[in-house]
Amino acid sequence: MVNVDTASRPPRAVRPGAAPRAAPGHRTRRVHGAPRLSGLLFTAPFLVGFALVFLVPFGYALYQSGFIERKSGSGFGRAVTEFVGFENYVRGLTDPVFWQATFRVVVFAVVQIPIMLLLALVMALLLDAVTGRKTRYFRLGLLIPYMIPLMVGSLIWLYLYSPRLGPLTDAGRQVGLEVDFFSVDLLWFSIGNLLTWGHVGFNMLILYSALRSVPRELFEAARIDGASELRIALSIKVPYVRGTLVLTGMLSIIGMLQIFAEPTVFRVTSPETVTSNFTPIMMIFNQAFKAGNYNYAAALSVILAIVVGAASALFYRLGNRTQS
């Protein structure tokens, strides 16, 4: 799926698909005397669980999405489950509430992910530019948000934003700004900042590791040629970590389209702004457990899976095209 091999190489050497094709013959060749079924036996315990936790539920979701539970008569009679083919999908594909939620998270992802990755890249470049003991302290400090559980991070910012407890609204007032972090206009900014805070350090760490594999001699050569530090960063370091950026971006997209916990926490304080169908997963959860309509929830989750797959494939294409 992902050819991240590119991350470890200078951009000139990147030809998609070139390296991996040569490798497998060497890596997966049958070793001397390896009993033929041993590999399967080592994999078997995982496979049993994988079937139970992934394949069966996946099939069950597909199966369920083909049915509708109808209450017969006045609504007190026994519910009848009948096969309806694609009716749930037609309903989902034409459900404006679902598409509003999907559109919301897609727009959010398009704005949020580049900002977060750009900050992570700047942090990684800065960290790569310091030497000695300082590197360790800064790296640890910048990773502190990653050590904070997701729920706690959400709570901290929820309170920081809150006009009752938080210092941020007061600070805004002192410079003459009346800020409501939970208003319709600012809500995504507030959630975006919370996500950036929680995830930027980790993405920085991945990019930093990629930067460390750039041959140092390149920088010295550039310095002798009179290139400024900024120029070195932009022309040598950034192209080098492009493959890593594409991959972290893709993983971020998959996560962002499925955002659930953060908006759910924000819904506690502002239920009018963060509606129960605010994001696709919130709507699916709602359909399943509040409305009790598992069949429709199953169909929606299949549609969401297709959206996620299409979005990451598109991003991967675009990311690799700019590379060549």
Binding site: M1, T28, R30, V31, A34, R36, L37, S38, G39, L40, F42, T43, L47, F50, V53, F54, L55, V56, P57, F58, Y60, A61, Q64, I254, L257, Q258, F260, P280, I281, I284, F285, A288, Y294, A297, A298, S301, V302, L304, A305, V308, G309, S312
Partner: peptide, 27 residues
């Protein structure tokens, strides 16, 4: 190791990254 079905298993493992967790958790 090489064994029959290995390619399929690898494909399923990597393909499952894209499945939304809600799609699995509800069923």
């Amino acid at each position: 190791f090489t064994f029959p079905g290995k390619k399929l298993i690898l494909g399923l493992v990597i393909g499952s990254f894209l499945i939304p967790y809600a799609m699995l958790t509800l069923p």
